[in-house]
Design a protein around this nucleic acid. Structure first.
Length: 432
DNA sequence: TCTGGGGTCCTAGGACCC
DNA sequence: TCTGGGGTCCTAGGACCC
């Protein structure tokens, strides 16, 4: 298994675009550091650090704001190169993936030769640098790539696994963060060797059954997970931090409508629907809570998501209560939903905001009227009844527009057919 | 060290069912 | 009447990862 990990990925993409940035302390981010060049890291700049703090540590830091779409494209380029070596690629995030190259030896040679060729190919074709860790298990490959960084390659041969692993500190293990690390320290466990020598029952008392088994397995490099090319998302979420403390219900409604819209669209695009909706609130004092609701049937409807989220908000917050700094909506319990969705495009700009707020500009009104006419021609007048209603201001809630949602909402009232409330769910298609 | 956004997985308690 | 055993589902919170 190879673990392929891009070095300072976002920064690398920016340097590729603008070579003047090469060799300089660079950070990509806005508000917080998302990615820092190794020059910046030598000053102590780390990702997730506030930019203010980063500038204190490194006054000459060059900050680039960056476009997410560029990174997404660059990521595709890199993993396309990987695809020339093996089809068994499991992408873990935008900048890392596991590759099963067990079938590639005849074509490309030893593991070290494969990894070396891959690093060279990625550099030649994308001008981006990847580090690679190689081992028999995913877990150890990942540890190895981390040790190899930056611009490095480490192949852990089977007979060296234990030596390699046991020399590391516990924070190299997957799933050991600050909390677990300090719990282990209280037990006198600092290295992976310490961990491997501790009976599982002792760990279990401190970390729980599951955590203990997990860590003990990793300490002995037991990791049976295969490289599996595509895993379906188990949740879809969106959140928005508006800083400081807001107590204005109108703002909350607008933010929730926006979040519901983002979540709903993404679900619909993937032909998915979710049964559980979770509202996340972070108060001004950074205390965070979640409130969730599981529906009788799954939905991908923006207006339904919005309605549930607003209701959940009202359960713990009312006008005049404490300030809120962040709201998020997560949709989980996801299933396949084959509905054909029609959406009216109102864009993401000021017009969309106006529409959500219920104040339509004349130009927006005309543009929507035009779209509605087109839809009416295509799908008949029934299909667009709701849109006209919205344009005429008959809907008072600031809900973003999605044609099918209100079609569904309309139908039972028109013909009294309530069986539409719970559409039958098809099985997941075998390969889509 | 208090600051973004997108995720996964686990635990524990409680309601409810047979 | 308040005592067994096995299970599912939902909710809330937390740790962790990129």
């Amino acid at each position: 298994v190879l673990h392929v990990d891009l070095d300072a990925f976002y920064v690398g993409v920016e340097q590729r675009r603008n070579p003047a940035l090469v060799g300089k302390p660079v950070a990509v981010g806005g508000g917080v550091v998302l990615s820092a060049s190794y020059e910046a890291r030598s000053f102590g700049v780390r990702s997730a650090m506030s930019l203010r703090k980063a500038r204190e540590l490194c006054p000459k830091l060059i900050v680039v704001s960056g476009e997410f779409a560029d990174y997404s494209t660059a990521s595709d380029e890199v993993f396309e190169v990987c695809g020339k070596f093996t089809p068994l690629i499991e992408q873990m995030s935008i900048d890392e993936a596991f590759l099963d190259v067990s079938g590639a030896h005849t074509l490309f040679g030893t593991t070290a030769q494969i990894a070396t060729a891959l690093r060279a190919a990625v550099l030649a074709e994308t001008r981006l640098v990847v580090s690679i860790g190689a081992a028999r298990t995913k877990f150890l490959a990942k540890v190895a790539s981390r040790v190899a960084k930056p611009d490095g390659l480490i192949v852990v041969e089977p007979d060296r696994e234990t030596v390699f692993l046991h020399g590391l500190t516990v924070d190299y293990l997957w799933g050991v963060g600050p909390v677990t690390q300090s719990k282990l320290a209280e037990l006198g466990i600092f290295t992976v060797a310490d961990l491997a020598g501790t009976p599982e029952e002792v760990l279990a008392r401190r970390l729980g059954r599951g955590g203990a088994a997990h860590l003990h397995a990793l300490a002995w490099n037991r990791d049976p997970r295969r490289v599996t090319p595509r895993r379906r998302a188990r949740s879809v979420g969106a959140q928005s931090a508006f800083g400081g403390d807001c107590t204005d219900e109108t703002t909350f409604r607008r933010v929730l409508a926006n979040l519901a819209d983002r979540v709903g669209r993404r679900l619909r695009r993937k032909h998915r629907a979710a049964r559980t909706l979770t509202l996340r609130i972070r108060y001004s004092d950074l205390r965070a809570i979640t409130r969730s609701r599981t529906l009788r049937s799954a939905t991908s409807s923006t207006s339904a998501i919005y309605a549930v989220a607003l209701d959940l908000l009202h359960r713990t917050w009312s006008e005049g209560a404490e300030g809120i700094g962040l709201l998020g909506i997560t949709a989980s319990n996801i299933e396949y939903s084959p509905h054909v969705q029609l959406e009216l495009d109102i864009g993401d700009g000021d017009d969309a905001e106006l529409l959500r707020a219920g104040t339509h500009s004349a130009a927006l009104h005309d543009a929507l009227d035009h779209q509605v006419d087109e839809l009416r021609e295509k799908f008949g007048s029934d299909a667009v009844g709701f849109a006209s209603a919205l344009l005429q201001g008959r809907r008072d809630s600031p809900v973003p527009v999605s044609l099918s949602e209100l079609m569904e909402a309309d139908r039972p009232q028109r013909n009294g057919d309530s069986s539409r409330d719970t559409p039958p769910m098809a099985e997941d298609p075998p390969d889509s």
